[in-house]
C-alpha cells in the first residue's frame, strides 16, 4: 500500500502542474512551458523562508505567492504577450523555463535541498501503507483546488467568460469581455497558485534545480492523459502518472519510472490522442 500512497502524493504534485497548464490553456489556448519552473521557484522560496531565514509559515506562503505571481506577471509581459501562436509561445516559454532554471542554479546551486514540512511531520498507517500528514494534506488540497476551479469556471460569470474565451477569443471580445485583462488575470493566478502550493510540495520533491524539467514532463503527460483543457482530467492524469512512476519503481527497479511514464505517454497518444476527457473539434474552413 505504501507505494500507492506515495504514488498518489507525487501524483498530486504532477496534478498541480497539470492544473497550471490547463488554466493557461483555457485562457490562451497555448502552452506555458515554464509553469513547472514557477512551481520549482516557489519550492526554493519556501526552502529559503523555512531553512535560511526561519520565517513564520504565513509569511513564507505570502512571499511565495506574491513572488511567483510577480514572476508570472513578468513572463506574461515578456514571453506571452509579444508573440502570437502556440508554436512561438513554445519557444519563448521554453526560454523562460531555461532562464528560471539557470537563475535557480545561480542562486541556490546544484545540490538537493531538504524542505521541512509545514506543520506536523507525523506519518500515519492507512490501509496497511504509510503516508505522511503532509502528503495527505497535499492530495486533499489538490482535489479541493481542482473541484473549486471547476465549480468556479462553470458557475461564476468570470469563469464562464474564461470558457467563452477559450472557445473563441474574437467572439468573446465582441461580447464585451476584456480578453486581455482576463487572460492576464488567469496567468498570474497560475503563478500565485504555484506559489501557494510550493511550500506544500517542497517536502515531497525536495528543492533541486533539475526539478522544473522533470515536473514539466510529468505534468505534460498528466495533461495528455486527462485531455487538454479538462481540470478533472488534469488531476486524474496526475495521479495516474504518479502511480505508474511509484509502482514501476517498486516492481521494476529505479531506472524505470521515467521510462515507464514515457511508455504511458506514447500509449495514450497512440490509442486516445485527445486524452480521457478531451474532445476533438472538427476543423472548420
Amino acid at each position: 500500500m505504501t507505494p500507492i500512497w506515495s504514488g498518489l502524493s507525487i501524483g498530486a504534485v504532477y496534478a498541480l502542474v497539470a492544473i497550471g497548464y490547463t488554466v493557461v490553456y483555457i485562457a490562451y489556448t497555448t502552452f506555458n512551458f515554464a509553469h513547472a519552473q514557477l512551481m520549482m521557484f516557489a519550492i526554493f522560496i519556501s526552502y529559503w523562508g523555512f531553512v535560511v531565514s526561519d520565517l513564520p509559515v504565513v509569511v513564507v506562503f505570502l512571499i511565495a505567492a506574491v513572488g511567483v505571481g510577480l514572476i508570472a506577471l513578468l513572463e506574461e509581459f515578456i514571453a506571452i504577450r509579444p508573440v502570437k501562436g502556440a508554436h512561438a509561445h513554445l519557444v519563448t516559454t521554453l526560454g523562460m523555463a531555461t532562464l528560471l532554471d539557470g537563475a535557480t542554479r545561480l542562486i541556490w546551486g546544484d545540490q538537493v535541498l531538504k524542505v521541512p514540512p509545514v506543520g506536523s511531520d507525523a506519518t500515519w498507517t492507512i490501509l496497511g501503507g504509510r503516508i505522511g500528514a503532509v502528503e495527505v494534506v497535499l492530495i486533499l488540497s489538490v482535489i479541493a483546488i481542482a473541484a473549486a476551479l471547476t465549480l468556479y469556471s462553470r458557475r461564476s460569470l468570470t469563469g464562464l467568460a474564461l470558457l467563452a474565451m477559450a472557445e473563441d477569443r474574437d467572439a468573446a471580445l465582441l461580447r464585451g469581455i476584456n480578453v486581455k485583462f482576463l487572460a492576464l488575470g488567469a496567468f498570474v493566478f497560475t503563478g500565485v497558485l504555484a506559489g501557494l502550493t510550493g511550500p506544500l510540495v517542497g517536502p515531497k520533491t525536495f528543492a533541486v534545480a533539475t526539478l522544473g524539467a522533470a515536473l514539466a514532463l510529468k505534468g505534460f503527460v498528466a495533461v495528455a492523459i486527462g485531455g487538454f483543457g479538462s481540470l478533472p482530467g488534469a488531476v486524474i492524469g496526475g495521479f495516474v502518472v504518479g502511480l505508474v512512476e511509484s509502482l514501476s519503481g517498486r516492481w521494476l527497479g529505479s531506472a524505470y519510472p521515467t521510462i515507464m511514464v514515457f511508455v504511458v505517454l506514447i500509449a495514450i497518444l497512440m490509442l486516445k490522442p485527445a486524452g480521457l476527457f478531451g474532445t476533438t473539434k472538427e476543423r472548420v474552413v
Binding site: 514571453a79 508573440v83 519557444v91 526560454g95 531555461t98 539557470g102 537563475a103
Partner: peptide
C-alpha cells in the same frame, strides 16, 4: 549558459 540561453530564446522568439 542557461540564463543567457533563456534570455536569448525569449528575445529571439519575439
Amino acid at each position: 549558459s542557461q540564463v543567457i540561453y533563456g534570455i536569448f530564446l525569449i528575445v529571439a522568439g519575439t
